[in-house]
């Protein structure tokens, strides 16, 4: 068949023009991404393979393997991220469930309570926790004043403080996708389960929980990945005892002016994050294959 019918050439030209217009509209965004993302990351990548005398070298990566402080940093990062994510799931799932069962109005009000801190500066929130948690902070003063404990608890400048701060900051990132997934679960499915003989607990376990899993996985992934690169909260609430990868990078630059070492750490962090994302998408797809489609 030939495309030489009436208007064939004109219509084809219209289509080409439309495609060009779309490309033109997205060009600024592409340029921005290139300048602010691709170039710096590429520069970091290059730096990490350069020795002090600007020759190619693997010394920064070798040092990462040889110096135990790097290993400890990665272990700390992983530990903090896993704990934070686990605590977020423990707190966030019941919270999202409660929100999903409320009327829209009540859920909206409660959601504001979750989101309000989300809209204030991260630094402000972190210092607010410092005020609350320190030796002579509100919590210790009240706890001792009410006679609940005698000695001030070490709530800050350690892992505990870091986790409290990070869970608080991360919680909305888990609750929001989870809540969206829960809200999209058809209430009739739970009625059907009950009608077919499932007790409320059984209906939750066999119907609601599996259908909320994609949302939970999405939220978990976001929280975990954000945790991996977290800087402010461990720096302020960890009191120098919780050194995560970001803090290590900052130290390398601010204390030792070693851009190469910092870049190498950044590259490793980036690769780890990408690997995690890849694994998670594989897992999600697998989940869909095993469990049937969710939509």
């Amino acid at each position: 068949m030939h495309d030489d019918g009436p208007n064939a050439a004109g219509l084809k030209r219209d289509e080409r023009r439309e495609r060009l217009a779309l490309l033109g509209l997205s060009a600024p965004a592409l340029l921005l991404v290139f300048v602010t993302m691709v170039l710096p990351v590429g520069w970091l990548f290059a730096l990490s393979f350069l020795a002090d005398d600007a020759t190619f070298s693997l010394e920064h990566y070798r040092r990462m393997l040889e110096q135990p402080s790097y290993g400890r940093t990665f272990v700390t990062t992983f530990k903090v991220s896993v704990f934070t994510t686990a605590l977020c799931i423990g707190l966030g799932y019941p919270l999202a469930y409660a929100l999903s069962q409320m009327s829209r109005r009540a859920a909206g009000l409660c959601l504001i309570a979750v989101l309000l801190p989300f809209w204030t500066s991260l630094l402000v929130r972190t210092y607010a926790w410092l005020v609350l948690l320190q030796r002579k902070g509100l919590i210790n003063e009240w706890g001792i004043g009410l006679g609940w404990w005698d000695e001030p608890l070490a709530l800050v400048h350690n892992l505990t403080g870091t986790l409290i701060g990070m869970v608080h900051i991360m919680l909305p990132f888990l609750v929001l996708p989870l809540l969206a997934a829960m809200r999209s679960i058809d209430a009739d499915l739970l009625k059907a389960a009950a009608n077919l003989g499932a007790s409320p607990a059984r209906a939750f376990r066999t119907v609601f929980l599996p259908l909320s899993l994609p949302g939970l996985l999405a939220g978990t992934l976001i929280v975990f990945i954000l945790c991996l690169g977290f800087y402010v909260t461990p720096a302020v609430l960890g009191g120098g005892k919780v050194i995560m990868v970001s803090n290590h990078i900052a130290n390398d630059i601010e204390l030792f002016f070693n851009w190469g070492a910092a870049s190498a750490l950044g590259v490793v962090l980036l690769v780890l994050t990408l690997a995690l994302l890849w694994a998670a998408t594989r897992l999600l797809r697998l989940e869909q294959v095993l469990g049937g489609s969710h939509r």
Binding site: D186, D188, L189, A192, A193, R202, V207, L211, H294
Partner: peptide, 18 residues
Amino acid sequence: PHQRDIGMVFQNYALFPH
């Protein structure tokens, strides 16, 4: 409801998608 032992066909079928 779960003790009534009645079968029900819902308007939107309410089949478990998973």
